[in-house]
């Protein structure tokens, strides 16, 4: 039996049907020097019942090399409305995300420089799936402020994605996701961008979904499918470098989770095309998400560190070093 992949269309403008249906918009940016990083996730969870009203949550993370990690609770406000390149013609280019009290805030002007990939879908469990569409090379210019700090002008480059699906955290298992943008010219897209995803459901070790994608000058030039990628990790990031977020999580006796790998290597090859991504983790913010189906929280580790990308694609050698954002997510059934 084929799994039910939800309403027709990759990202339908349809109500979320039950308490496991979700959608979100995700943003992650880094300054070329790596001094400032901004990560935000605006999510909506469906609800059952006749008067069902979805539950919206937004969280903002700002990492400053000097001041460390700062996070809102799951109640950041977004004004005037969420920006998305997937509806670029209608969306405003300015977006402000802020904490209601004493948290970090950002006020950014967002610009796309390239094109997104086609949507991808990971089916798992009996009737669950996660569908996503990625776009690297997004520019963000404006100001950021850590908790209670002064505003700081920034010029960032990053990533945006939209997600829709129906899943429970224990069945989903976990994922390794990330991106690297080559340092861009003052205007225009980065010379190269790489986005990688590996979703490993709890059951069926051979049913992982993954891909490595390479953009050149804003255009997707290569998509390495899951059978042609190879992912390995080494070492552990010191627990002193993993910061539990949002602030409330630290006061609730949140259980410890697995150690975050210190190094990630992803190798992709198709025909003569080869790509190798080598990420060296330096710090991580652990976002503790409650699970609707169990007591163990689902943890998303936002990991920052330099990455070395080398390869040979379409007859061209490529290689660059830039800051990466990697997510190690999982643990809802095994914390």
């Amino acid at each position: 039996m084929l799994p039910n992949l939800g309403p027709v269309g990759p990202f339908p403008d349809a109500p979320l049907g039950d308490h496991l249906e979700r959608r979100w918009l995700h943003y992650a940016f880094r300054s070329p020097s790596g001094d400032v990083s901004v990560i935000a996730n605006l999510s909506t969870l469906g609800s059952s019942g006749p008067a069902a009203v979805g539950q919206s949550m937004s969280i903002l993370l700002v990492h400053d090399r000097e001041a460390g990690w700062h996070s809102s609770q799951f109640n950041a406000s977004v004004t005037p409305r969420a920006w998305s390149s997937f509806g670029a013609s209608k969306s405003p280019s300015r977006m402000r995300i802020s904490s209601p009290t004493h948290g970090p805030s950002v006020d950014l002007r967002l610009t796309r420089t390239g094109r997104p990939c086609t949507s991808q879908c990971a089916p798992f469990g009996l009737d669950q799936h996660l569908r996503w569409q990625s776009e690297p090379g997004i520019r963000a210019t404006g100001v950021t402020a850590a908790s209670g700090g002064d505003e700081r002008p920034v010029r960032l480059v990053g990533y945006h994605e939209r997600v829709r699906g129906r899943w429970g955290w224990p069945d989903l298992g976990g994922w390794v996701f990330g991106f690297v943008n080559d340092t861009p010219a003052p205007s225009g897209p980065p010379a190269y961008s790489v986005v990688f995803t590996l979703i490993t459901p709890r059951d069926n070790a051979d049913a992982a979904t993954g891909s490595v994608m390479l953009w050149r000058s804003g255009r997707l030039v290569r998509h390495f499918p899951r059978r042609r990628i190879d992912v390995a990790v080494s070492g552990s990031l010191s627990r002193d470098d993993v910061h539990v977020l949002p602030p409330l999580a630290a006061t609730l006796g949140t259980a410890p989770t697995a150690e975050v790998p210190a190094r990630l290597v992803i190798v992709a090859q198709t025909g003569d095309d080869r790509l190798c991504i080598d990420v060296d983790a330096r710090t991580a913010g652990r976002i503790v998400n409650s699970s609707e189906l169990g007591l163990a929280p689902f943890s998303v580790h936002e990991v920052l560190g330099p990455a070395v990308v080398t390869g040979h694609v379409g007859g061209r050698q490529l290689g660059f070093t830039a800051g990466a954002v990697v997510e190690f997510a999982g643990g809802a059934h095994a914390d």
Partner: peptide
């Protein structure tokens, strides 16, 4: 890498194109 001089952590595969292991 030595953890406190006693134990070693070897690299491990999360996905080799056919089988996955959760990083956690």
């Amino acid at each position: 890498p030595l953890v406190g001089g006693t134990v070693a952590s070897a690299p491990r595969s999360l996905w080799d194109g056919t089988r996955a292991t959760g990083w956690w």
